[in-house]
């Protein structure tokens, strides 16, 4: 799927493929027990991102010009980085290992105590809204900043265009 996105030059098809890719990754998340993440990925990744990209294509163009420069340098860099990363994975814990370091630090406490402390059966919700509430506040700030940025970038052009019409 990703390789098809690399090759295709018709941007409409690229955007559609990336939407399908998001939906597939949501399926992977369900398989890995992350149902909340899967909901968000399907709604936000496959839905909103695709709509935003289609909007951009409507405002710009949907055919990519064939590349002019040679592509061996990026390919070499990518292969070297990929080989280094694969070498790095050989020391990582196996998939599903209950004694992996990531699963031993604070997670057992969340699983055992959050039922009494917060009272919400969904542990992801209690961590998101209660234990890591400041994180979520920061996330809202980021979204607000991005929204303001988009409005400034796109709202300014409309005003300029109206000014041109008047003259």
């Amino acid at each position: 799927m990703a390789l098809a996105i690399v090759r295709l030059r018709h941007l409409f098809a690229v955007v559609m493929l990336s939407g399908i890719y998001s939906l597939l990754s949501a399926g992977i998340f369900v398989q890995l027990d992350a149902v909340d993440v899967a909901f968000t990925e399907a709604a936000v990744g496959a839905g909103i991102t695709t709509i935003l990209m289609l909007g951009t294509l409507a405002l710009t163009t949907d055919i990519e010009r064939p590349p002019v420069q040679r592509q061996w340098l990026p390919l070499v860099v990518v292969l070297a980085t990929g080989a280094a990363l694969i070498y790095g994975t050989l020391d990582l814990p196996l998939l599903g290992d209950p004694n992996a370091p990531a699963n031993l630090h604070v997670a057992p406490r969340y699983i055992e105590e959050s039922g009494q402390e917060v009272g919400v059966p969904n542990i992801v919700t209690s961590v998101l809204a209660s234990y890591r509430g400041y994180d979520t506040l920061g996330e809202v700030t980021v979204i607000f900043t991005a929204g303001v940025g988009v409005l400034v970038l796109l709202g300014g052009t409309r005003r300029r265009r109206q000014g041109k019409d008047r003259t």
Partner: peptide, 13 residues
Amino acid sequence: ISLSKVSDATAPI
């Protein structure tokens, strides 16, 4: 997400 998977476990609800 794959780091957080524990085999024979279920979703954290």
